[in-house]
């Protein structure tokens, strides 16, 4: 059996007295892609936040890389989380955001130039993220997430604002990340992207 990187066992979460997750279990191994699917409000993002250590569980337990996830630097050096659009640093260009990510980690999975080309931003490298379109900012966010080294990738609806062609390319990028030995858990509404991995609904039922 392959190494289990993420284990969520019988996880339940209540928010304001309302059950959001009820007894969800999930296991993701090295090199595996797990896609969380389901309608709005089914708890996909909440489960991702539990895996990132940002949402305390009401019952059950979660381990990531053999330990309980905590919101600390040592955890984030291993785990890359992509959620809502970040607040971009004022005064920096898109390229500089990517170079900053590479610089703070000391190494990178690709150069800033390669990332800009891969994510279709080479013509807008000198633009402030504030002056990019919604889809371009999502691409930049994805590039910043994927340029840095990590062992676990947590993506919350990464297809938001992306055109159809780039959604296909994103699927390939996610598969390449897993092929390098990474583990991916992503919440998505895109059937093609969900088809890249093992699909699961937050009710705990494995659908394929």
């Amino acid at each position: 059996m392959s190494e289990a990187i993420i284990v969520a066992h019988e996880v339940s979460v209540e928010l304001g007295g309302n059950p959001v997750l009820a007894g969800v279990s999930l296991t993701a191994s090295r090199g595996e892609v797990v896609a969380l699917v389901g309608p709005n409000g089914s708890g996909k993002s909440t489960l991702l936040r539990c895996l990132a250590g940002l949402q305390p569980v009401t019952s059950g337990h979660v381990t990531v890389l053999g330990a309980e996830p905590v919101d600390e630097a040592a955890f984030w050096r291993q785990v890359a989380l992509m959620g809502d659009e970040p607040a971009w640093y004022p005064g920096l260009t898109g390229r500089e955001h990517l170079e900053l990510m590479a610089a703070v980690h000391g190494e990178s999975r690709m150069t800033a130039d390669e990332a800009l080309e891969l994510f279709g931003l080479d013509g807008r490298a000198d633009a402030s993220p504030l002056n990019l379109s919604t889809g371009q900012r999502q691409r930049l966010h994805l590039a910043a997430t994927l340029i840095r080294p990590s062992r676990v990738l947590l993506l919350d609806e990464p297809e938001r604002g992306l055109d159809a062609a780039f959604r296909t390319r994103l699927g390939v990028l996610v598969e390449e990340y897993a092929a390098e030995g990474g583990t991916v858990v992503m919440a998505t509404h895109d059937p093609e992207l969900a088809g890249r991995g093992c699909r699961m609904s937050p009710t705990g039922q494995l659908t394929s």
Binding site: P90, L92, T93, L100, A103, V104, D126, N131
Partner: peptide, 28 residues
């Protein structure tokens, strides 16, 4: 302010991680 400015990317200096992060304020 930054929406109305034209910027030109400059290479990020090779600094230890905390200073590489803090370099943003210097550049700004």
């Amino acid at each position: 302010h930054w929406r109305s400015r034209r910027l030109r990317s400059r290479p990020w200096p090779p600094l230890p991680a905390p200073f590489a992060l803090a370099w943003h304020d210097w550049r700004r």
